[in-house]
């Protein structure tokens, strides 16, 4: 500053270089702040835009079928009759299978990484699990279609049918499909591949929340003679249960919206089968398969299903946020 002032002393009544730079500083400040604000608004506008676009484009379908579109179980482009039910149920069932398998497995992985593994093994195992999350979903799809589905059909499916098939009620879910049983393309295999895809997400959230449990809590439990399992089940899990649920919701959101892997493996049947071993469909797979060839009411109906999917993932996201927030809040409470 002082050197600037010295150099301008010669021209005493000309202080404008300083003023000018002050002005440009101030202008720069305003410009920078408001362009930052503008781009934050862009993010807002994109999400609002997605929602508005989905609602507007799907209007004809809602007008044609009303709320009955959600429960309509016919998808017939020839008769111009569309309903979301088979794909909606397929989406939810595949996601449910993914959670039934994925939840205990990711719990086990999280326990292993945070409690059991020796120090030198923690990082490589953690990295391996996270790399599993980075593999693009289309790769899971190819692997699922060409390797896992045939493997499933040859080795696991017969066992499932033989053991669970004869059970009353429950057994109908595990009947051998009349057609295509040997390819292994089914809702069940899609659910299993979804489980493999969501496990890394759930396992790393669980590992992260397990690590916030204060050592002193665990050590007190060990000091009174608790086993490792008792510490995990009675100390770690109660302390972190909302965080764990948040992780599960996150995984569920992914499982519901996953497209490419499911499109490869689920078989894309338009009808709802009674057995989990039959081909089915999900909303995302239906979109991937039919969107480009569709027009008119079929296109509108596909967009309407997209809207349903968007709303479902939104609900799961909000639930997971609420749970993770209440975990953070309860932690604050414990500190004070």
């Amino acid at each position: 500053m002082s050197s600037t002032r010295a150099s301008t002393l010669d021209d005493a009544n000309n202080a404008s270089p300083i003023n000018r730079s002050k002005l440009s500083f101030a202008l720069g400040d305003v410009a920078f702040k408001y362009s930052a604000l503008f781009f934050a608004l862009v993010v807002l506008a994109i999400v609002v835009g997605i929602f508005v676009m989905l609602v507007v484009q799907s209007m004809p379908a809602w007008q044609a079928f009303g709320a009955g579109f959600i429960t309509g179980d016919v998808w017939d482009p020839v008769r111009e009759q569309y309903g979301a039910w088979p794909s909606l149920i397929g989406t939810l069932v595949a996601a449910a299978i993914a959670m039934l398998i994925g939840l205990p497995v990711s719990f086990g992985i999280a326990i292993f990484i945070s409690e059991l593994a020796p120090e030198w093994l923690k990082r490589p195992i953690g990295t391996a699990v996270e790399l599993l999350a980075a593999v693009p979903s289309i790769i899971y799809g190819m692997w699922g279609l060409f390797f896992f589905a045939p493997f499933f059909a040859a080795y696991i499916q017969p066992g499932l049918v033989a053991v669970l098939g004869p059970l009353p009620l429950f057994g109908t879910l595990f009947q051998m499909p009349s057609l295509g049983g040997s390819s292994g393309v089914s809702v069940m295999t899609a659910g299993i591949v979804l489980a493999i895809m969501t496990i890394p997400f759930m396992a790393s959230v669980m590992r992260d929340v397990f690590q916030i449990v204060p050592e002193s809590l665990k050590e007190s439990a060990y000091a009174v003679g608790a086993t490792q399992w008792e510490v995990v089940w009675n100390v770690v899990l109660p302390y972190t249960k909302t965080g764990v649920m948040g992780g599960v919701m996150l995984g569920l959101g992914r499982a519901v919206g996953e497209t490419m892997a499911v499109t490869f493996i689920i078989g894309n049947a338009s009808k709802l089968g009674t057995s989990l071993l039959e081909p089915g469909s999900t909303i995302a797979a239906k979109l991937a398969n039919e969107f480009n060839e569709a027009d008119g009411l079929q296109m509108d109906s596909l967009v309407a299903m997209g809207l349903i999917l968007f709303v479902i993932t939104f609900i799961f996201l909000v639930l997971s946020k609420l749970m993770l927030m209440s975990l953070a809040a309860s932690q604050e409470g414990m500190k004070t």
Binding site: L44, G257, G306
Partner: peptide, 19 residues
Amino acid sequence: VRMINDILLSAPSIIIGVF
């Protein structure tokens, strides 16, 4: 904006294609 950003982060990518 943070909340909205999380929605965008978890939105199914096929929906973004439709948009």
